[in-house]
Amino acid sequence: MTDTTNPLYVKLLGETARIGWAELQPFFARGALLWVAAEVDLVAVALAVAEDDRASVAAWLGGGQLAKLEESRAEDLLEREPPLWAVVVAPWVLVQERGEEPEARH
C-alpha cells in the first residue's frame, strides 16, 4: 500500500496531468517514455522510480505493469488519441491511459 501522506507522493500527484499523445511524441522519440498499466497507481510508480525503489520497479517490470513504451503502442496511441495521464520523474516521463481523475485511484 502506498503512503499517500508521503510529501513526495503528494508533490508528484500535484504534478500529474492529463496530456495528449502529440505532446508526448518528442519524449517517445528520445526513448524517455515509460508505460504504466492502468491497474497500477501511476503516482505510486513515479514515487518508486523517484526514490530508486528497485524492488518495486523490478516487480512491475517483471509483471509487465511497467515498460518502456514500444513503437506498436505509440502507433496505437497516435491512431486512437485516448486520454492519457503523465508525470515526470527525470529523465523519464511516466504515462498511463485512463479517463478518470488520478485522485480517484487511491
Score class of each variant (00 low, 15 high):
Ala44Glu: 02
Leu69Asp: 03
Glu81Lys: 03
Glu100His: 14
Gly14Thr: 14
Glu15His: 09
Tyr9Asn: 08
Ala22Asp: 07
Arg73His: 07
Ala48Val: 10
Glu23Leu: 06
Glu75Val: 15
Leu84Ile: 10
Lys68Leu: 13
Glu39Asn: 10
Val36Phe: 00
Arg105Gly: 07
Leu8Thr: 09
Arg30Phe: 07
Glu79Tyr: 15
Glu100Asn: 15
Gly64Gln: 11
Gly20Val: 13
Val10Asn: 11
Leu42Gln: 03
Leu84Met: 15
Leu94Pro: 01
Tyr9Ala: 07
Asp53Arg: 04
Val49Arg: 00
Glu81Gly: 04
Val10Cys: 10
Val36Glu: 02
Gly63Glu: 12
Pro91Ser: 06
Glu23His: 06
Ala46His: 00
Ala55Asp: 11
Leu77Cys: 03
Leu84Phe: 10
Val10Arg: 15
Asp76Gly: 13
Leu61Trp: 03
Trp21Thr: 09
Arg54Ser: 10
Pro82Glu: 14
Ala67Arg: 02
Pro91Met: 05
Arg73Val: 14
Pro83Cys: 08
Trp21Ser: 05
Arg30Asn: 13
Val93His: 01
Trp35Met: 13
Ala104Arg: 14
Glu79Val: 14
Arg30Glu: 12
Pro82Ala: 11
Ile19Tyr: 00
Pro7Gly: 07
Thr5Ile: 04
Gly20Lys: 12
Phe28His: 03
Met1Gly: 14
Lys68Thr: 13
Val57Tyr: 06
Ala44Asn: 03
Arg105Thr: 12
Val88Trp: 00
Val57Ser: 05
Thr4Met: 07
Glu39Pro: 05
Pro91Val: 09
Val87Thr: 04
Glu70Tyr: 09
Leu24Arg: 00
Pro91Ala: 11
Leu47Gly: 01
Gly20Cys: 09
Ala48Ser: 12
Gln25Ile: 11
Arg30Cys: 13
Pro82Trp: 06
Thr16Tyr: 11
Pro102Lys: 05
Trp60Thr: 07
Ala50Gln: 06
Leu94Ile: 03
Val40Arg: 03
Thr16Asp: 11
Lys11Glu: 09
Glu51Phe: 01
Gly64Tyr: 08
Arg73Leu: 12
Ile19Gln: 01
Val89His: 00
Phe28Trp: 04
Trp35Val: 11
Ala17Met: 15
Glu70Leu: 13
Glu103Gly: 09
Leu77Tyr: 05
Val89Ser: 02
Val95Gly: 00
Ala86Ile: 02
Glu15Pro: 06
